[in-house]
Design a protein around this nucleic acid. Structure first.
Lengths: 216, 216
DNA sequence: AGTTTTTTATTGAACGTTCAATCAATAAAG
DNA sequence: CTTTATTGATTGAACGTTCAATAAAAAACT
């Protein structure tokens, strides 16, 4: 039933169907036939809109990463006070946002992460996203502690966030977003508490934000 | 060139070849032909010794998990003093042991983790291992803090360890074992420091170790 | 307003490829 | 001469892609 302007609708439909299929049977068994069936369309249409299965997979990963980035940005925008701590909390909240933390998303995310080890195009997407998260974290920590410490803190918090996703994706009960958020926030507390006592005396903090950006 | 008693040799050979193949091209493209070529044998032999490809993959995952467990156990045995903190440090050291943290192992480990989301047999292996790590952590933390705190600390440290592996597996430069160890140990420091101040006054600590075991 | 033509969207069967598993043949060791 | 270990060609199933056919909608025309 061809209407005009189907392209954006079909693309969304197929991306969603891809996540559903991966959630159901895993990336390895997510065939084009199965994805198409999930979307209620024919298999051929995938090549038509995405140039092939790989194109669809890449588009799906793009969607997940941009959704995640958008959720973080939204949390940042909601902030009333602009302290480094509040910013860091917003990053955590964004990463465990209800709209993001669903079984299909978590499982698809992990599947792509594993897959990106050997697919250069996916690896690039992953890396860009990764660096952005790390940069954001580091820029904020930098305002509260020396560079070395800030780097370590960023690495640690990033690892906690990814680790919680990872474990959540595998757990039979699904990712417990609320518990994960609490664990990540508690980690942040401890990371800041460590240098809070020092921060009072040594005022290395909050100078310019230009040097705060750290490209690993 | 058939000699007797080839079975254990071939099994080891093929398991190692599996990791090498996954390191090289990923689980999705690790065909039996490629694995066999890596081991310098014919493809048919895989079905002969492992009953099929799935059997080989399961055996490979078993190997990785048992190696990891063995490394942790070895670090614990080396301990001179038996404080909870030393035990926790040993768990961390074991998880980032040089013999374990290689590219083939890290990549295979992650590939299996992703795969186990949809393969019940692998999921079971993963879960058993997971619970063991969590139990070990919780038993030690329990000697230093109240149960609720101990659970949160265990979850956090487990997430940090897995998160560091995860990020290490993807990073182009490979997993930086030394840096990861430092980050994990620093996290442990902070987790203990938080309740150290309390531990001095309230002596909830080091009583019996029977109630310390916590099955999640 | 009705009819024809063009454009756009979609289908699904056919094709070629790839893979895991099988098994009869083979060759060394006991 | 029997047993054990190994091979590699073969088989059948499954997959992604392609493309001619189709059908609906839009545009053009009378």
């Amino acid at each position: 039933m061809p209407k005009v302007g189907m392209e954006p609708i079909r693309r969304q439909q197929l991306i969603k169907a891809t996540m559903a299929a991966i959630d159901e049977v895993g990336l390895a068994d997510a065939t084009v036939a199965r994805i198409a069936r999930h979307a209620g369309v024919s298999a051929g249409i995938i090549s038509h809109y995405f140039g092939g299965k790989d194109g669809l997979l890449e588009a799906t990963m793009r969607q997940i990463l941009s959704d995640l980035g958008e959720a973080v940005a939204a949390c940042r925008r909601k902030l009333r006070n602009d302290t480094p701590r509040a910013r860091l909390e917003a990053i955590i909240e964004g990463n465990f946002d209800r709209s993001q933390v669903t079984d299909p998303v978590a499982k698809t995310w992990l599947a792509f992460w594993a897959s990106s080890m050997h697919k250069p195009r996916l690896a690039r997407l992953q890396q860009v996203n990764d660096r952005r998260l790390y940069s954001n974290l580091c820029a904020q920590f930098r305002r509260l502690m020396p560079l070395d410490e800030a780097r370590l803190a960023s690495r640690t918090l990033a690892a906690v966030i990814d680790g919680l996703w990872l474990r959540g994706a595998l757990t039979p009960e699904g990712l417990d977003a609320e518990g994960a958020r609490r664990a990540a926030l508690a980690t942040l507390d401890r990371l800041l508490a460590a240098s809070d006592s020092v921060a009072a005396s040594s005022s290395v903090a909050a100078s310019d934000s230009a040097t705060a950006i750290d490209a690993r």
